[in-house]
Amino acid sequence: MLEFDFLTPNRLDESTAILEETGGCILAGGTDLIPKMRNDLFFAPILVDLSNIDELSFIEEKDDQIVIGALTTHQAIAESALLKSTNPALVTAAGTVGCVQTRNRGTLGGNIANASPAADSVPPLLVYDAQIRLLNKAGERTMPLTEFLVGPGMTKLESGELIHSVSFSQLQGAWGGAFQKLGVRNGMAIAVVSVAAAIVLDASGKVSDTRLALGSVASTVVRSPKAESALIGHEPTPEVVSRAAEACAEDISPISDVRSTAEYRRHAAIVLARRVLEQAAAEARGRLV
């Protein structure tokens, strides 16, 4: 492995000061970075290890917002009772990341910063219109997660900056959320296609709000406005849901790669979209009073 200097700040303000001073690369769980460095796919002369910054590892409810610290592991998300009751799609997604060894080390911030179109945590965050909070030595900024993710491996994170946390509003009323992922096998699989959905029903059982996000079918995880508008104002009958799922094909641009073909991904995206929308709608109906 190539040589680098290794810095271990103990406080958050020390971390941003070191990042500003050195322009070093952040190391969190290392599950993506270390294999990349070993295979010479990535090089950084200075690594800034955030292992000791415990204050970036948390899941909390603040006003009506759920806030998750960047260093929260996938396993902590998969086991969180608060997230199970507020964003079950994210809990399901976190439980599908790699294997338990990977989930015990890999972090939410790392999954986002890595900016893979197949990142499992991202679709469930996009369906909740998540915001991302970034810190540097001088201050902080917050932006929608969709804006932060620019392309494969590309984000708006600037040198000297770190991801502090991600936050989203809880859904209210008769809501349901779901996530499904298709991999080449059940365990340890990178997504061929992943889809997350949320549906909110009004008192008459019609869709008042809905979001659909798809992974591994475009250069970033994408929302499907076409599918969403096909549902709004309608009762989510099987026919309506099928039509909405088919509409998502217009919002995606899958490619062929080592894991699958564009054609198969387009087909699988429609099938998974229908399944998660049905699952979210059933859950939402269960909450209708």
Binding site: F6, L27, G29, G30, T31, I34, P35, L47, D49, Q75, V100, Q101, T102, N104, R105
Partner: peptide, 9 residues
């Protein structure tokens, strides 16, 4: 926690 020791610096 179980971890892969090859992925820990």
């Amino acid at each position: 926690k179980a971890v892969n020791s090859c992925l820990v610096f």
